[in-house]
Write a protein that binds this DNA or RNA. Sequence first.
DNA 1: ATTGAATTTATACTAAATCTAAATTCAAAT
DNA 2: ATTTGAATTTAGATTTAGTATAAATTCAAT
Lengths: 129, 129
Amino acid sequence: MKINLTTQRKAVYDIILQAHDHPTAADVIERLRAAGHNFAYGTVYNSLRYLTDNDLIRELKLGEAASRYDARTEDHHHIVCIKCGRVDEVMTDVPQQWMEAVAEETGYVVHEATINLEGVCPACKTSKP
Amino acid sequence: MKINLTTQRKAVYDIILQAHDHPTAADVIERLRAAGHNFAYGTVYNSLRYLTDNDLIRELKLGEAASRYDARTEDHHHIVCIKCGRVDEVMTDVPQQWMEAVAEETGYVVHEATINLEGVCPACKTSKP
DNA sequence: ATTGAATTTATACTAAATCTAAATTCAAAT
DNA sequence: ATTTGAATTTAGATTTAGTATAAATTCAAT
Ligand SMILES: [Mn+2]
Ligand SMILES: [Mn+2]
Ligand SMILES: [Zn+2]
Ligand SMILES: [Zn+2]
């Protein structure tokens, strides 16, 4: 079906497109308010789901309480700073050979691998305790 | 501090030790009931947290709603069958070289990588649609 | 036996997200 | 232009997973 970008969906999409910090639904609502929009709570969730289902954005589950959203739909992974909570992109892809080893080990047909890393970001490395 | 395995904590631990399916807290409560125990809801959660904090078990966040628990504390990963929901172990470790490439790319000090795979398990591969 | 810290219990509460039913929007058909 | 109906939005209730609280209890050390 053709994609129907209503005012609300477009506004939500724009927030995600402009963000570079993988915002949560709560972040999105906050930024919509700041931009003068005041959509119903559920509409924002519906929009995020709609955009996700239509592959315009991606939903990230990084093991935190709330999902985050990402306008980059290419295959990539994420690393979270354990000091400041910052989330960065990991474009380096896992070796195909490793995926094959997993298929071999488990007997599964492997569809995809979601990789969430943890570490200390450059800024936090050089900051006082 | 010395580990204090109360009756409740021991019973919860035993359930996890005997399970090979990475049960959720709800699964644990169900199995405790079946074993004749009827602990307070919160006690099971407290016990799971206590056991996790003391490295007797591991908490898994596989991107599903509820956490799962695992008696295998060695470093390993998981693969979920998209047909039946089964969760299996992935012992094949990701190449150290890849971790180094990620550190290089992101500038992070990388502490750990959590890898959740998805695919179709051997049983579901050969079953009717 | 007495004390007190740790634990368990029952219950209330929270956070994230979904569901529901009424109100609205909006394009197509008359 | 008006009617129709499907899609969408809205406000609010509901669900799920888990945490917080405060009273009751357990239990080891005095
Ligand atoms: Mn990203
Ligand atoms: Mn495991
Ligand atoms: Zn940081
Ligand atoms: Zn399966």
